[in-house]
Amino acid sequence: MIRLEQVSKHYGPAQNRIPAIDEVSLQIAKAEFVMVTGPSGSGKTTLLNLIAGMTRPDRGSIVIAGRDLLAMPDSERSRLRSRSIGFIFQFQAMLPTLSAIDNVRLPLLFAGRPDDPQLAVSILAKVGLADRQNAFASELSAGQQRRVCIARAIIIKPALLICDEPTGDLDHETANLIMALIGKAHHEGATVVMATHNLELCPGADRTLRLKTGRISG
């Protein structure tokens, strides 16, 4: 499903490049649940963004479902994200000008699928927000916003679900609820790659990758 070979990504000015990901090679099988751990600044977020085609590596190759991500034009990478990849951010990522239901319906537009408000309502119901479908981000708690973002990520039934610290700033109960939703997506066949500090939250993961200063250490 996912193959990275000798992938490197640096930040900063040319004379002082800091490696965020350094010569990383890995493979993730279809429907596998992989956890990525490591201290802050170890490159977890960069790695997830590289896998999602949201940024380009400086070196190396990334192959998703047999297709070379770097050889694709931007429009095709956008299409891949819209149809096959769900991304859950580590920050509040609801679009503030759209209601909860409109946030959830938006990926259907980019995926070129017909609008389906009923599907959006049923997904919102799955995350426990059926009664808050018309609420805006400013009217929702952090946990509720995170659940809207999960609903938005799974409405397209993504083959690959990428979660970047999805429970970072949430209370234990909400974190458990969110992990259950991610687990459910995995059980339904999605490949899950999740970055987290909290290993206890995810006992069902198939594998754990440990990152340290941009390299896989275990």
């Binding site: 994200r81 819209s82 951010f89 503030p96």
Partner: peptide, 16 residues
């Protein structure tokens, strides 16, 4: 900028 990034992450093209 962040919202535009989110739109792009959801699959919006550069043209969009």
């Amino acid at each position: 900028q962040r919202e535009i990034g989110i739109l792009r992450a959801l699959g919006a093209t550069r043209w969009f």
